[in-house]
């Protein structure tokens, strides 16, 4: 009986394990293999050493991703909070509005922003009618960060909203009852309880932001090279799979470390009781 059950379990798990092996583990090994070999397949540390030349790119990518994440958070948190306070019908409506842009492909959305921000785009035309501009927007850091914020905002709103709508209203009433006015409730109850949602929102925005290449290519006007662009160029244009793999590997390790740090931060706050100061 017991054996049959475990046999069944193996069967149930098998497709998933196979999937994970083929599409997650094997590619990871391939990336690692390329990163530590040269074009002839011999072991080398040259690729890793060459990364020093891309310090600047790494730095800009991290900076832009952090700024984009911070801006999405500032927009998403209050939005999610007010959304969770609305009636069920309004919540559904707002959710639809948040999700709507995601029904369109990322490429199309980014192209639309190009049209809006271009030298002959919608904004500059409007400004022109008022006798202003034209302003150069494509090719600036602002345009790239805007593209990130716009594209990834739903990924920040959704996890925060989900966790906020699960906060038991009686907790807020209890806080109210014990003397907490609105801001105290936000600080001592809503914020700590919504933190796991914030952490996953940050992860879901920061990771695609730091590795994007499409947004920076289109809205950066070819002038802004992020780490994603560099990887793409090494692989697509320079056919240097080894260097491309080395940069990917470092990016991946960096992302994993950031995630670990953030999760640690969330755990600590959950367990330690968090003093009210």
């Amino acid at each position: 009986m017991k054996q049959r059950r475990s046999y069944a379990q193996v069967l149930i798990n098998a497709p998933y394990l196979l999937w994970a092996a083929i599409f997650i583990l094997v590619p990871l090994f391939i990336v690692a293999y390329y990163a530590f070999t040269d074009a002839s397949g011999a072991f080398t540390m040259a690729n890793i050493k060459e990364l020093a030349n891309y310090k600047q790119t790494f730095w800009i990518s991290i900076k832009y991703a952090l700024i984009a994440t911070a801006i999405t958070f500032v927009i998403a948190y209050p939005f999610a909070y007010f959304m969770s306070k609305k009636s069920a019908a309004k919540q559904q409506m707002m959710m639809l509005l948040v999700m709507l842009p995601m029904w369109m492909n990322l490429l199309i959305r980014t192209y639309s922003w190009m049209n809006i921000l271009e030298r002959n785009g919608i904004i500059n035309n409007l400004l022109g009618m008022m006798g202003l501009g034209p302003w150069k927007m494509i090719g600036t850091a602002g345009a790239v960060i805007l593209g990130m914020v716009y594209n990834y905002l739903p990924y920040m709103i959704l996890p925060i909203y989900t966790i906020m709508s699960k906060i038991d209203n009686s907790l807020l009433e209890a806080a109210d009852d014990l003397g907490a006015h609105s801001f105290a409730k936000l600080r001592h109850i809503i914020w700590p309880l919504s933190l796991p949602g914030v952490i996953s929102g940050i992860a879901m925005v920061f990771v695609p932001s730091i590795s994007t290449f499409y947004i920076s290519q289109k809205l950066g006007g070819g002038k802004i090279m992020l780490i994603g662009d560099t990887i793409e160029r090494q692989i697509q244009t320079a056919y240097n799979y080894n260097l491309g793999a080395a940069i990917s590997l470092v990016l991946m390790v960096f992302v994993l470390i950031s995630m670990a740090v953030m999760n640690r931060f969330a755990d600590d706050d959950g367990e330690g009781g968090g003093m009210i100061v």
Partner: peptide, 12 residues
Amino acid sequence: NTIFQRYALFPH
């Protein structure tokens, strides 16, 4: 002050 039906203790 109120004692709530399901206590509403702060889980964090």
